[in-house]
Design a protein around this nucleic acid. Structure first.
Length: 620
RNA sequence: GCCCUCGUAGCUCAGGAGGUAGAGCACACCCUUGGUAAGGGUGAGGUCACGGGUUCAAGUCCCGUCGAGGGCUCCA
């Protein structure tokens, strides 16, 4: 977008440019960068051991943007300590130590790491699990090999690879970032270790690019933009943590999202139901949720002998509705019950996160009752529906994951149904042309599923759409339909959400659009700016006319300069500004400016209406 | 829940190694009526998250509670 030939240079208030972190090499595990990071992890461990004699070391791998190492420290570490450790690391690098690899016998390894309990655990694990140096299972008959890498005084159990010499690392291209707690092996029953994260690159330039990217990404964090744009707030003391309150502007966006989904899915043959907010606890005992999901349910409300729960999910309610509506013929199926239902989940406090992890969330939920032989065609239709809706938002960088059953006993034991359902989903996915990955052991206990996962600006993954096959609940709750043979059969249920939750979807969208919603979603689409007081009445009339055309319009007639009011409108990311003064009043025109700083000049009101309608239609 | 960091006006933040609170923005009023990114002035606004403790004296030090932020397998 060209800058106008006036005003300050820069454009710091425009939507952030889509910058990206430095690229991660193809075949990362065999790249120089991987060696650099892995070696820095060792160098950091050396520095930490020097500073904290007696520290226990756990693991220290390279990660996407750097590396970390986990320690069990004799006393708490502070963020100020990072500077010391970083300085010592630069010294070690400058000392120019070679990294040497050696194969080590199990007994020697046990001796070498006798004071390092985590390493000893790893040694036994490697020996018993039998994996090669890259963690892959060994061919039958081969023995696992233990290796160490040593530089300076520090020798670590490690599969490598490393740089040849510490001088191969640019001392100005890494930075220690943060301290975090991390459970040994990610298991919350195991000890909490101290993890130090660092970022590392080949060159100082790449490091700068990475740090700039993080800074830009933080600017489009939905929590920050939500506050700046006045979309939602939290009142943890008064209302409770994890329960967002939506302002008039935020509610409009919610409403538009839900209306849009409702409209599209109605076109696809969905119906809508409504099932309230609290449910007798006993229903969840029968559905199986009380046993499996009790920890995410709020405690019960007790009324004499009756116990109620805030609804954490809708399936039992929808199934009860199906049942109470009377007998169902196979001719009615598939029967699709959709509901924009606010449910409540008792998420752990440490896991709450803005709008993407909350305790009150509104699912665009749906349960589809159908015959087993209808799974594939219904699933194919759902894939179309999901793609149409995500496409409207320009969301295309999602991943599709087909979750299948794995080993272990948590899965409902009915191999025939599993095989049929998994084949149906796979066939439909193949026919759709979507790229997808298969994840064994990730299925729900009641059936396979397909998830659509999007990433936020900081690279965190969030599940949006989901389609799940359910073999178990319909039977547990006694659902039936009368088949063509006149007998009772149990329907299969598909659980389906497209946005997932309105709140999370909105959070992802705010970041996706950097707060600059497309015209059809913008809380305020047009602001009318009268130049002087004598134009205010005209501005109000103009706004009224635009409102009758269905637009969301405000008038900013404050006693501030025009420049000031333009700046305010652009900060609010309002798509269109209409400036009206003497000339426009006389000619019945408007001077149109966009939030992108592009000045469209003067046009008639009808021409403007045509333009904005085209934007709304196009979804831009 | 656990580890680290943090909690001062609506927002963003100052308050050097204890002595009873500041700025910018936003807000209100006045002046200004301005043609495409900040006109000027005046003013209001804070039990320094909450509860204990140390001290003659605590926003500043200690303990606890409640919130918020980052993180909690990308597996030698």
């Amino acid at each position: 977008m060209p800058n106008p030939p006036f005003g300050r240079a820069g454009g710091c208030l425009m939507a952030p440019k889509p910058i990206s972190p430095p690229p991660i090499p193809d075949d990362y595990p065999h790249s120089d960068l991987y060696r650099i990071r892995h070696s820095l992890a060792h160098i950091m461990a050396q520095a930490v051991l020097e500073k904290f004699p007696g520290a226990k070391i756990a693991i220290g791998p390279p990660i996407d943007y750097g590396f970390y190492y986990d320690f069990d420290l004799p006393r708490p570490i502070k963020e100020e300590d990072l500077a010391d450790i970083e300085a010592r690391m630069r010294e070690i690098i400058a000392e120019g130590h070679a990294f040497t690899r050696r194969v080590i016998a199990p007994d020697e390894a046990r001796e070498l790491f006798r004071d390092q309990p985590y390493k000893l655990e790893l040694i036994e694990d490697i020996l018993s699990r039998g994996t090669d140096e890259y963690g892959n299972p060994l061919p039958p008959g081969e023995q696992p090999v233990l290796t160490t890498y040593k530089h300076a005084t520090f020798e670590d159990l490690c599969r490598g690879p490393h740089v040849d010499n510490t001088r191969d690392i640019n001392p100005k291209a890494f930075k220690l970032m943060s301290i975090a707690g991390a459970y040994w092996r990610g298991d919350e029953t195991k000890p909490m270790l101290t993890r130090i994260y660092g970022t590392a690159w080949r060159t100082p330039k790449e490091l700068r690019q990475y740090l700039q990217w993080r800074e830009e990404a933080q600017k489009r964090d939905h929590r920050r933009l939500g506050k700046e744009l006045g979309l939602f707030v939290f009142a943890p003391d008064e209302i409770g943590p994890g329960i967002p309150l939506f302002t008039p502007k935020g509610e409009i966006v919610r409403h538009l999202l839900e209306s849009y989904v409702r409209e599209v899915q109605t076109r696809y043959g969905f119906t809508h139901v409504w099932t309230g907010h609290i449910v007798r606890e006993d229903l969840y005992a029968r559905s199986g949720h009380l046993q499996n999901y009790a920890d995410v349910m709020f405690p019960p409300m007790v009324d004499g002998d009756d116990r109620y729960r805030l609804k954490p999910m809708n399936c039992p309610s929808h199934m009860t509705l199906y049942k109470k509506m009377g007998r169902h013929s196979y001719r009615e199926l598939p029967l699709r019950f959709s509901e924009f239902a606010t449910v409540y989940r008792y998420e752990k406090k440490g896991e709450l996160h803005g709008l993407t992890r909350v305790r009150s969330l509104t699912q665009d939920d749906c349960h589809i009752f159908l015959m087993p032989e209808q799974i594939q065609s219904e699933f194919a239709m759902l894939l179309d529906l999901v793609q149409e809706i995500l496409g409207r938002f320009g969301l295309t960088n999602y991943q599709v994951r087909l979750s299948l059953r794995g080993e272990g006993g948590k899965y409902v034991d009915d191999p025939e149904k599993w095989n049929a359902a998994e084949a149906a989903l796979r066939n439909a996915l193949n026919a759709s042309g979507l790229d997808y990955t298969e994840a064994y052991g990730e299925a729900a206990f009641y059936g396979p599923k397909a998830d659509f996962v999007a990433r936020d600006t900081l690279g965190r993954e969030w599940q949006l759409s989901t389609i799940q096959v359910d073999f178990i609940q319909p039977a547990r709750l006694g659902l039936t339909y009368i088949g063509p043979d006149g007998e009772e059969h149990t329907p299969v249920v598909l659980h389906r959400a497209i946005m997932g939750s309105t709140e999370r979807f909105l959070g992802v969208l705010i970041e996706h659009y950097a707060g600059a919603f497309p015209v059809w979603l913008a809380p305020v689409q047009v602001v009318v700016l009268p130049i002087a007081d004598r134009h205010a009445a005209h501005a109000q009339r103009l706004a009224g006319r635009l409102r009758t055309e269905g637009l969301r319009v405000e008038v900013d007639a404050d006693s501030e300069t025009l420049n000031y009011r333009i700046r305010r409108a652009e900060k609010a990311k309002i798509p269109y500004m209409l400036v009206v003064g003497d000339r426009e009043m006389e000619n019945g025109t408007v001077a149109v400016r966009m939030r992108s700083r592009k000045n469209l000049g003067t046009m008639t009101v009808d021409a403007f209406l045509a333009r904005i309608r085209a934007d709304i239609e196009a979804g831009t």
